[in-house]
Structures are given as structure tokens and as C-alpha cells.
Write a protein that binds this DNA or RNA. Structure first.
Lengths: 218, 218
DNA sequence: GTTCCAATTGGAT
DNA sequence: GATCCAATTGGAA
């Protein structure tokens, strides 16, 4: 069973190799959902106090596609705050139904549906893919690995840093999957840095070309 | 004898021994065992599979000390003075006597004495060390890997690029030495880029602090 | 549409 | 003193 296998792989109990087994896309596609719209609102990075578990927001989709997708605004708002762990006082109703998968230390939870779409073709692709499963595009575009200022551009505003625990969980997950290639953490972190930079560029493109800016040759 | 051993190492008949990446060594990570680099097993395909210019037979150099290399070291005379004579004050006659060692394709010759000083502790150290054995500090400081302009600093003057053949020979040499870790060329090239940048910074420092700039507390 | 590359930088290690 | 890190960039792959 795919889910069971995915969980086993998670725990490193199934061997990986450079060319991983073809990803069970069918399972993911069965419940495929349209990517939620990314509100271009730069959210303020709220530092969690002492999070026990980092829960990645789920998409507004019914648990196993059996039920009609009951989209609640609460869920959408939650999706805006990917870095913030679920708050105790906010009971997540539909979110609780979403099957979650722990990665790394187990403190980071990834929606199973998203996890199944992660591409394991190479450590770089896997890292970038995992990032997209865990963070929203807007978060990736507005954050950096360390939150430190660019030494080459000291005047540029500093970006907030990605949640360190989640980053660490991603790194160890990729390391485990590709452990036969003895990946150093710094390699994976470099990919994360590049991914954030690329997302930042893409976001900038979209902002400067909202709609109607394109040239239309007749 | 050291020279004999060096030649053996060149042919890959002596292996990396302890020479391997001393481990990621990130922060708290720690405990990955330094796995011993495969059992000693001569597997380097130095054998003359092809008559091409690939590998210069070691024998052509071994007799040395009085015979010029069979292959004309065209590359090294290429204006960039990649290989400087050991002693500037001695005439070039001893330079012709200097035992040279071919690396990579065999088109690049390294003075044996410098080659013996190369550190093989890790692929990064080895790469930087090899660079210093092949290029002068001033060349490293004034050149870059590709010779392309920095995309982040389009106004900066473009540096000349290091000799592509020599770079390739360095890359393949390091790759061969550390092939058990399946190094990608891009990794090694990145080290070269960084080394050039570091040498450039150092040169800049020296230029701004010739002598007499230091503070002397009594 | 992404991903990758590498030049430059200052500080950290 | 040398090496490593990673933020930023534009264009190449």
C-alpha cells in the first residue's frame, strides 16, 4: 500500500538509491486539488514560543476526497501562516482530518497528499520539492535560510529566516533518503538558499507583471 | 621513497587512506562515522585504453631530471604563467630539470615538489591545494573560473578566466582521488570559484596594507 | 517554468 | 591566515 510504504520510507526502513522508485503519483492525483491562490500579503514572521509540533498547513481540501470540499476561511487563513504551529486555542476542524506525515525529528508534519507529490529524483529536486510541500511560495519568497543580511548587499532589507526546526527536519529527511551519497548538510542548505532566491525572483516578476502588462503581438 | 610513492599515488595505485572528507561537521550533528573509503583495490583505469592524449605514461616522467616531457606542455607556456619556476632567482635551466608530474589529461604538468605538498585531506582542501600548486597567487587573485562577469555586480570589471584545460585537469584529478564520494564536477568548480575570490580578497588586503600600516603596541 | 551556475561580498569559523 | 558560509544577482541550461 502506498501510504504504508511512504511511511516506511519516511522512517528510512526502505532503501533509497539515486533513482528512487517511481513516486506513487496516482494516490496523490486521486485527491489532487487546485493550488490555492497565493495572497501576496507579506505576513509578519511570528516566532513561535515553544512549539511542540510544526504543522504544515493543508490545502483546502476534504480529507480523502470522499466528502465535498468544504472550504472554510479558517483553513485559508491558516495557510497564510505556515511557520506558525497550530495554536492550541484554535481547534482545526477540517485540518484534523488531513492525514499528516512526520519528517525528520517528527516535530514537522507534512500533509500526506503533499508528501506524496515530492519528487525524489535527486537531492536537489527532492529538497526543493519538499520545501514546496512544507512552505508556501510566498513564505519561500520572503524568507531566507538564516535570516542574515547579504554580505554583498548590506543595504538590502533583511529577510526573516525559515523556521529552523522545519529546515533541519527537511535536511535530515533528504540526508536519510540519499544517505548512500553521503550528502553534507551544507549541500542541502545551499539548495534551500537557492530555492528561496528563485522564489523571490519569481514573486518579483509576478508583482511587476500583474495582468495586462504583457505585450500582445497581433 | 617519497617520489616513488607520489608517482604511485598519481596512478591511483595508492588510495586515499585517511584522506576523505572528515565529515560534515555541522553544528551539533556529530556522530557520523568516518567510513573508510572502500577496501584498497586498484581500480583506477589509467591503463592506455586509448592512444589519445589522455594519460601521459608515467614512464615518460619517471626517468626525468634530464629529459624534457614527451608531450609538449603547451598549456603551461600559455602566457598566464600558471607554473612559475620554483626559484625566481635561478635561471630557467633548472626549471627544465624540475621533475614534472602530469595530472588529469596529462596536458597539465605540476612540479613534483609542489605536487608532494598537496593536501588530500578533503576534496575542498585538495582542490585549493592543487590550485596553489598549479597557479600563482596573483593569477588566482586576478582570474575567475569562467571569466564571466558577476551577475550581481554588472559594473565590476571582468576577470580573465583560468586556463580551462588546467581547470579541467584539476577537477578530474580531484574527482579521481575522491571518486568514492561521487563528487560532481560542479562541487569542485565551486571550490575553485571560492578560492579565486578568497585570493582576490587577500591580495586586496595586502595592497591596502603594504608595510607600516600595522599598529605596534609598546 | 524551474533549476542551475558562478561572481561578489563580509563575517563566521 | 585560510577556509567556509550564504545572500543576491542575471543569464544559461
Amino acid at each position: 500500500m502506498y501510504i504504508a510504504r511512504a511511511l516506511l520510507e519516511l522512517r528510512g526502513e526502505i532503501f533509497e538509491e539515486e533513482a528512487m522508485e517511481p513516486i506513487p503519483v496516482e494516490a496523490a492525483e486521486a485527491v489532487q486539488a487546485i493550488e490555492p491562490v497565493e495572497p501576496a500579503m507579506p505576513e509578519v514572521p511570528i516566532e513561535p514560543v515553544e512549539p511542540a509540533v510544526h504543522q504544515v498547513p493543508i490545502e483546502a481540501v476534504a480529507p480523502m476526497a470522499h466528502v465535498a470540499p468544504l472550504v472554510e476561511p479558517v483553513v485559508l487563513e491558516a495557510a497564510l501562516e505556515p511557520l506558525v504551529p497550530i495554536e492550541p486555542e484554535v481547534p482545526m476542524e477540517p485540518a484534523a482530518m488531513e492525514p499528516m506525515v512526520p519528517i525528520g525529528s517528527g516535530q514537522t508534519l507534512v500533509p500526506l497528499r503533499k508528501f506524496l507529490r515530492v519528487k525524489w529524483d535527486s537531492y536537489t529536486v527532492a529538497t526543493r520539492s519538499l520545501l514546496r510541500a512544507v512552505f508556501s511560495q510566498s513564505v519561500l519568497a520572503t524568507h531566507s535560510l538564516t535570516g542574515k543580511r547579504s554580505p554583498a548587499f548590506l543595504d538590502r532589507p533583511v529577510k526573516a529566516c525559515l523556521d529552523a526546526q522545519i529546515v533541519e527536519d527537511i535536511v535530515t529527511t533528504v540526508q536519510t533518503r540519499f544517505k548512500s551519497s553521503k550528502l553534507k548538510k551544507s549541500m542541502i542548505r545551499k539548495v534551500i538558499t537557492t530555492k528561496c532566491a528563485d522564489e523571490c525572483k519569481m514573486l518579483r516578476m509576478k508583482e511587476n507583471r500583474p495582468p495586462g502588462g504583457g505585450s500582445k503581438p497581433p
